[in-house]
Nucleic acid binder design. Structure first.
Lengths: 355, 355
DNA sequence: ATTAAGTATGTCAACGATGACATATGCGCT
DNA sequence: AGCGCATATGTCATCGTTGACATACTTAAT
């Protein structure tokens, strides 16, 4: 049953030329007479020849394949957007993409890295943050690694967003609407220790922007309004539980916030759910802003959020991989701009004394 | 720089044996003395040898890779869930997964199929509905194709959910809550013409279940309550626009429904948004049920929905692919059960005359 | 007429793993 | 001693493509 595709040799035989000539026609390089070209093209069509990229990969030591290591594609649509962009860029460049989800387990990530090496992928993209050890292993095998969004390995190339400026825009927006008691719901910077000498973490930047933004407007954050958690649990699909808990706690305060900035849409989802359950109207009673622009447009009310340019993150990630493969010059780090998308979840602060 | 991984020959040389012996140790087949085994294992460890699956693939004509053709992974989380499950099953079986999104363009799907063939993938999984022509092309190349969720090619193996029973459960649930004016928001069966002689379409089944369910309870649907659209636009991320439009139209009726069943969570998202904007409380004023259980848990209120067993769909899809690769006996079609997940968006019908 | 450059085509050894086949040794049994 | 079988190991062609190299014929320039 397994009817195989024709090989170069068969095409050559049919065309009455050598495999070298067929190769020259296919690769459009070297000298080929018009007649030979016609005969080869006819033979290729007649046999519906398709190059065997496996054989080519063996010979050229280039698989034209990149590995895409994902944290957990089902947990956050952010990963999906990046994955899709990476794939689109790769396909356009004639590359294939092999995916692997490690679900937050380093040993499983290791397993994927081993598989990537066995497969001789030309480069590996991590979204997000690779384990430094695994980057080392890849390097030892001569395979470049690129990190997207988060970095834990200073030696790897890195594409990210300007988290500080992005978060700052959200704070400025809320302050501009008259909010003074603004809560911060995010991840704990301490949870993601990084090489502080070189790259700041996502959490540091977003929390820093909150503090700086408040101060810049002469506001002093209420310590009880700063809620740092573990973001979300990669192993379990918790569906906004963490955000719900934060929002519930905030609502029980004697002086609850009039606005909540959460550093990721998934957290904001939980916040909205808790507010809905508590009977609070958004944005009339309280404003909510997020970060990422992943689920934001799917919520009711649609969420004001800091949009990450997911497509650009993926594209630049792939571009960096390609540059590394071709040993071209390239920046060690690319920082992209975010933009604030104002939707329905933020509005003017209620007149003082409303609660 | 490109430091290459050791080859079998180098391992053999280091261990002082032939490549055949190394191969026997690695494959755990044939006769190998304890001493030889030890030497080989030491050499493998010393060189951190990793088999080159490209070379292996060339020799064995098995790439241990499957192609996963997706419609548009960013449009519906359903695809993400299936993709993840396929990937997990594949990894566990020692396979790799190459992904390709065609975005609803048949010619682009063709391009992906050609790439899959060039790469000599062992099988292709379509999620969802392959173009029959492309399945033919794969078949001509000796590559089995499996379809997940929707089928447009009777000759391909098929894994799906029991859409009829699933939709019926939702209707029964709403009727059980006292609803009599139940709207149906879904896709138009006419948009997805299928081989009616063999496989019913998703739309036919869900709409049929609605009609049958209503009739079974002695209810007659108001024709104005049946809204058939094009589901959603694959090319553009419309974020629930279609669902919003349907819900807005329903709210303007003289006799609006007290419950809305939408045949997909993405549509339900739009419905919830429109109701939120119109100031309707869910489920106090109106109940909403969806289908898929993709975004459902992330919404406020959390959505009652018919859950598709995404993980099982992916797993069975891969299992069928594996069976096809190994030419094992296998069913031509697998139908999985759904289950109704009751959350916050459905509640008792308001007392008659409430609107 | 000789040379050099340009045009056109063919040969063949890699790439690394696999496994059919050949070979060789030891053991038990007749 | 001779046979058969289990054990143990090595040789090498093969998978399909690539590209370095060799070959040969034209044409133009010297």
């Amino acid at each position: 049953m397994k009817s195989k595709t024709a090989t170069l040799i068969e095409v050559a035989k049919l065309a009455g030329v050598s495999t070298a000539t067929v190769n020259r026609v296919l690769k459009q390089q070297g000298y080929v007479s018009e007649e030979a070209r016609r005969k080869v093209e006819a033979a290729v069509a007649a046999t519906s020849y398709r190059p065997n990229v496996v054989a080519r990969g063996l010979r050229t030591r280039r698989s034209s394949t990149i590995g895409l290591m994902l944290t957990a594609i089902t947990v956050n649509p952010f990963f999906v957007g990046v994955a899709h962009a990476v794939e689109a860029a790769a396909i356009a460049a004639g590359y294939r993409v092999v995916i692997f989800n490690h679900g937050g387990h380093e040993d499983y990530e290791r397993h994927g890295v081993e598989a990537f090496i066995a497969q001789r992928v030309d480069a590996v993209l991590f979204c997000t943050a690779a384990s430094p050890r695994n980057v080392e292993i890849l390097a030892a095998a001569g395979i470049p690694a690129i990190e997207i969004e988060r970095s834990s390995t200073p030696s790897a190339s890195f594409v990210r967003v300007d988290n500080y400026v992005g978060a700052r825009a959200a704070i400025d927006h809320l302050v501009g609407l008259g909010h003074q008691r603004i809560a911060f719901v995010g991840g704990d910077p301490g949870l993601y220790p990084q090489d502080a000498t070189r790259r700041r973490s996502v959490e540091e930047d977003r929390l820093g922007a909150y503090h700086d933004g408040m101060r810049a407007h002469g506001l002093t954050p209420d310590p009880a309004h700063i809620r740092l958690g573990q973001y979300y649990d990669l192993a379990n699909d918790v569906s906004g539980r963490e955000g719900r808990q934060h929002a519930e706690a905030l609502m029980e305060l004697a002086h609850p916030p009039t606005a909540i900035f959460s550093t990721c849409d998934i957290l904001a989802v939980g916040v909205l759910q808790a507010l809905y359950k508590a009977g609070k109207r958004v944005p009339q009673d309280i404003s909510v802003a997020g970060f990422d622009d992943t689920l934001a447009a799917y919520l009711a009310p649609q969420l004001t959020t800091v949009a990450q340019p997911v497509a650009a993150l993926g594209r630049h990630g792939f571009d960096m991989a390609l540059a590394a493969i071709e040993s071209r010059e390239m920046p060690n780090e690319i920082v992209l701009a975010t933009h604030l998308v104002i939707r329905q979840s933020t509005g003017p602060a209620a007149p003082t004394g409303s609660n």
